[in-house]
Design a binder for these strands. Structure first.
Lengths: 139, 139
DNA sequence: ATTTGCACTTGCAATATGCAAGCAAAAATA
DNA sequence: TATTTTTGCTTGCATATTGCAAGTGCAAAT
């Protein structure tokens, strides 16, 4: 994997240089909302990422400090991937994508319910969820 | 250009299927904040998109109803691209990306100032900006 | 009548993605 | 202790996407 050079100083462009692809945010989503934390967990996701792509995305996310690679407490064969403050800060973006998608697509009922909750008091939802996610990185 | 099939029903995945690439949101950005509206305008952007990629992205954005292709009032040689309600609805996402980027990167001072304004009263900023963008599509 | 501007298209090389198989270390099982 | 399974990758190869340079066709300006 090559480190892309920044295309410009634009904040949107710089952000897309990091997570502007079809897979990175899905891995973050899995870590945020589905409590996934291992290579095997991510492989099991509905979208069926290829093994080499997963490996390359994990590496790029780590290089960009969106995830950390740690020893798994259960076993040395496993690797534990963990969110960072930087990736937890992506939550507002991810919430807004949900809200946009809910307006313009058909969304499964359970997720729709969660989005409805989030919309009721966006700031509160983000605060609460952020606090929960932070717990995992401060222990 | 092939129409990708949805990878899953997940709202994040569906959204990324549409704008999860390095260029689509930059075109939207140019239309939202730099008043760009023609093929030539987009080519002039700092990030230097290749001509064929620009053509393919414009086609995909049009297929996904994020932009509309119209006759240019000035000349038949030109084409006017215009935002839709669906793409104007992306504004909250784009604002949150700005805010995230401002926290984690060095950003040019002028853009930083705009982000500061947006953060002061996010809802108001989005409302005002949305109203301005809508003006362009209702006339 | 000729040149310029605009919106693309085409050809081709480089890069990224997708799929299937393989592999080493650790853990579980016999 | 020996064998099998699990886990987290890597490798090889086909296909798709991207990037670059050049070219094309129509409209407008000179």
């Amino acid at each position: 994997m090559k480190k892309d050079k920044k295309r410009s100083e634009c904040p949107i462009s710089c952000s897309l240089d990091i997570f502007g692809d079809k897979w990175s945010l899905l891995i973050i989503r899995d870590m945020m909302f589905a409590n996934k934390s291992t290579y095997g967990d991510f492989l099991k996701s509905e979208e069926k990422i290829a093994t080499n792509i997963l490996a390359s995305r994990l590496q790029s996310l780590e290089e960009n400090k969106l995830i950390e690679k740690l020893e798994h407490p259960d076993s040395k064969a496993k690797v534990l991937y963990r969110l960072t403050q930087k990736s937890i800060d992506l939550l507002p973006i991810i919430v807004e994508i949900h809200i946009w998608a809910e307006k313009h697509f058909d969304i499964p009922a359970d997720i729709k319910a969660m989005i409805k909750e989030a919309k009721k008091d966006k700031d509160e939802f983000i605060k609460t969820t952020t606090r929960q996610l932070k717990k995992q990185i401060t222990t």
